[in-house]
Nucleic acid binder design. Sequence first.
DNA 1: ATTAAATTTGCAATCGATTACGCTATTACA
DNA 2: TGTAATAGCGTAATCGATTGCAAATTTAAT
Lengths: 343, 343
Amino acid sequence: MSKKTTIYDIAKALDITAATVSRALNNNPKISDTTRELVLQKAAEMNYEQNKLAQALKSGKSYNVGVIVPRVDSNFFGSVIRGIEEELNPQGYHVIICQSYEDPKTEGKKIDTLLNAQVDGVLVSTTSNSKKEPLKRILAKNIPLIFFDRRKDMQGVSSVVINDFEGAYKATKHLIDEGCTKIAHLSGNFSLEIFRERFSGYKQAIIDAGLPFNEDWVIKTKSNRTDGIEATKTLLQLNPRPDAIFSASDFAALGAIQEIRAQKLNIPQDISVVGFSNEPFTKFMELPISTIDQSPFEMGKMAAKVFLEQSNNESHVKMEKKVVLDPQLIIRNSSLKTQVLTP
Amino acid sequence: MSKKTTIYDIAKALDITAATVSRALNNNPKISDTTRELVLQKAAEMNYEQNKLAQALKSGKSYNVGVIVPRVDSNFFGSVIRGIEEELNPQGYHVIICQSYEDPKTEGKKIDTLLNAQVDGVLVSTTSNSKKEPLKRILAKNIPLIFFDRRKDMQGVSSVVINDFEGAYKATKHLIDEGCTKIAHLSGNFSLEIFRERFSGYKQAIIDAGLPFNEDWVIKTKSNRTDGIEATKTLLQLNPRPDAIFSASDFAALGAIQEIRAQKLNIPQDISVVGFSNEPFTKFMELPISTIDQSPFEMGKMAAKVFLEQSNNESHVKMEKKVVLDPQLIIRNSSLKTQVLTP
DNA sequence: ATTAAATTTGCAATCGATTACGCTATTACA
DNA sequence: TGTAATAGCGTAATCGATTGCAAATTTAAT
């Protein structure tokens, strides 16, 4: 019931104007120390809280930032969001989270909603076939747009991604170092740059090692467990049979492992497996899965930092910043033939 | 560069007043159809978009709802949030997500920040020892407050939780039905109601079955894997040794399984294990873990619905609604002695 | 003491949308 | 035709905070 107290209430109580109160609260130097003290005291006493909406309307800044991800109930995106929040909250920003569910149409709608809500910036991890029009609408309004993890080729848009090529290269190189020579690859949706890059890294590592590259050993999946199982069934029927699988996704790698075991083959003795993303379950498995860590938390922080830079950039000089994080190979028992057990 | 068009721009272009434009856009019946058409057309043409901030300031409604969870990078809370969004977005609400990191002080701060941002409601999953003062500040402003999953005993506050007692009872009963008679319990932080309830359900099931209740078989953990391992070490040294473990958390259950296997005992033949929460990894394990599903998605939707009801409730009659969802037992191989293999 | 300079504070407009109230036309009815 | 009722639109205030400009007051300087 107690109506919120405004600066007018404080002004009335002290018999001064709201203007003076506002200035006092904002540490404006044109206010005498005595008045400032008086105001601050009264404000505390009256339990004053600034109305951000009014301030937002006046300043044109909402201190809200939109984040669009395919979904939040995945460890990767959850961690990215956590990184973003940790960086933006101390700066007074709130994060509005939207999910595109991998649907470009939904993505477009969410963008419009966010623009409508007067967000000060938009951080996006695109869907596999995002449309550029909605994204351009953001730029047209001169609102900072930043891509993370999954980017689109758009001029003037900054991005924070990991080096997927390098990650795949490391993973494949590791398998080669462990003595594998017939390395298969479970790939993903090629309309996403990340999967094209991972494929390239895989291929390059094989070529660099002087091993033959075999088209048949590359199978596209939807990056889930069941597709991993199906693809592995196909691979295991080949002759010669692959002696390693590098999967562009942990979930497909999981499926692969399950199928390999179902066929009574040993991992890593018969076939080694490496995944991608360092999803929590890869660590907890009875047979822990080697994988590539994408440091999602740092990615989120980085994306937020880029936004802040862009946002505070007074000059009208636009800049495009590309941050590429280095992925880390995590070796576990699914690919370590010289078994070194860790506690 | 292109300044946003306002209703004043439209008014000027049509040589009418902003008031008329506003009414036309809001489908006010006091406007002629011809004018309305004209305005709508011009608005579309000029690419008009309503400024939610101005509207929020005027109406006092921000159409933002705050959600506070211990953390977002867990499947459970991620799914709850997804449910909340799915229910609120269509109603025009945005969700601002905050993380308390299980720290009551942080929680208090986030509450103040949300209030400051003029949110229309706050949905909270409390920390283990939340302070009531910040929560009361929400109520003092007459802003709907809803608890989900983890509640505090506060008069007039609605909540959506699952029946933890029932879930634990079902899990324990299942173990008994499978022939176990010496069932241990890995518990959690007792300052959280959910863990007290789960313990009670466990105890009641044992008593109802006429089995002896043994204090030594109940061990408190921090609901993580390492604590699960430690607790299990203790349990396995007991004489007589338990023949089943019901863990109040999936992570502790995972630790238990790892320790049991490390000691070369068989699951479920020697010892059966049931967890709680249906975390994704429980399904993917080589030995899938039986667990209790909390339907987080539905919980989120339900919490959002309760908020909407409360928010649209014109009358000043306060009501307290308690929704209790029914948990579901998911039987997997970690507790199924009469092995029925699923593909 | 008088004027110039500096400090403090007030006035009023502004951000964009909404809405109670009231003023014109237009229509209805006798 | 005259009066009342109604439809349609404009005027202006409002939400709460901010800020350029001007006014008032104090301080400094001569």
